[in-house]
Simulated assay, not measured.
Amino acid sequence: MATSVLATRSHEGAEQTLRLQLARHGDHPGILDGAWWPHSRDLARELPVLLAVLDPLWGRITHASVHRATWPHIPGKVPAAGHILRLGWFDAEQDAHTISLLSYTVGRWDLLVVPPPASPDAAAWAMDAACAPDNTCTASALVDAMEHVTMSPLPARSFCTPEQR
């Protein structure tokens, strides 16, 4: 069973609801640790809201990486949750639809990043699929499958080819 986190946080005077679902870590052999559905592609605006919730749960997150083609602007540093988050990017080395979060003390987490313009039904399906204990699909495979399913009762693995796992 996944944990959904819907929290409203204020960032620079504006209220923003965080759309986040986390897999249960103790019994989760899946390749993704959860899913995040940002409201925009503005990392400087979105990351402080995400870290305000995740830092107390996972320990201080000090570094993050994203795929360069997915985000129009990737700042090197982002003030978040009372500290500075260092942000990097990759091309081929990282799935285009993930964000990797790192902490010196606790470890690494990979979250599916649901595209901001996704429909609520498609986003809910992808977030559930990413957090399923038996998920073997990559983040990109789940995003590709979002175009073909809407709240399908079928498990995500039925939409992923062996090359997408």
Rank of each mutant, 00 (worst) to 15 (best):
M1P: 12
S4D: 11
L6F: 11
T8V: 14
S10E: 13
E12Y: 03
G13R: 05
G13Y: 06
A14K: 15
E15N: 15
Q16N: 05
L22T: 01
L22N: 03
H25I: 02
D27F: 14
H28V: 02
I31V: 15
S40L: 04
S40P: 11
S40M: 04
L43M: 11
A44D: 11
L47H: 01
P48M: 03
V49W: 04
V49F: 07
A52P: 05
V53H: 01
D55R: 13
P56F: 02
L57D: 09
R60C: 07
A69G: 07
T70P: 00
T70M: 05
W71P: 05
I74A: 00
P75Q: 04
K77G: 03
I84D: 11
R86P: 01
G88W: 01
A92R: 12
E93T: 08
Q94I: 10
D95Y: 07
L101F: 13
S103C: 03
D110Q: 11
P115Y: 02
P116V: 03
P117M: 02
A118C: 04
D121I: 12
D121M: 10
A122V: 04
A123I: 05
W125D: 02
D128M: 12
A130H: 12
C131R: 02
P133D: 07
P133C: 04
D134H: 13
T136R: 13
T138Q: 07
T138H: 05
D144E: 13
A145W: 12
A145M: 10
E147N: 14
E147H: 12
E147L: 15
V149F: 08
V149L: 09
S152A: 10
P153W: 07
L154N: 11
F159N: 01
C160P: 06
